[in-house]
């Protein structure tokens, strides 16, 4: 699992590549820490190269959303594959996030 954090048009964009599962979750959790500390900027989770997301990955995405919402920041999920979108739908989380 690779993650890259970039600033694009004043947004924070985190690129995910590979499988976000139980094994890669601890490392990813550390990588997303700057997203939780940021304020006043929208966050984009770019999933164009994300092959798989497990419950551990969903929890990481939810924790990012939970820290952004009270600050009035938006969290967008971008470039999500159909299979991962289906995971969001079947768990009922599809309406929590904004998709690009």
């Amino acid at each position: 699992m690779n993650t890259v954090l970039k600033e694009e048009n004043n947004d924070l964009v985190m690129y995910f590549e590979g499988r976000l599962d139980t094994a890669s979750a601890p490392e990813t959790e550390k990588a997303v820490a700057p997203l939780k500390e940021s304020s006043g900027r929208d966050i984009i989770l770019d999933c164009s190269k994300l092959d798989y997301i497990s419950s551990a990955g969903l929890r990481i995405f939810l924790s990012i959303l939970k820290s952004a919402k009270p600050k009035g920041d938006h969290v967008y999920i971008r470039g999500i594959s159909d299979s991962i979108r289906a995971v969001f739908a079947m768990t009922g989380f599809v309406n929590l996030f904004e998709f690009k």
Binding site: S54, S55, L58, M90, T91, G92, L96
Partner: peptide, 20 residues
């Protein structure tokens, strides 16, 4: 819901799942 979830190992659900 069973037909969707039983074939996965997802162990977190939104409380909106039932209503959805």
């Amino acid at each position: 819901a069973l037909s969707h979830l039983a074939i996965t190992d997802i162990d977190i659900l939104s409380s909106s799942a039932a209503l959805q």
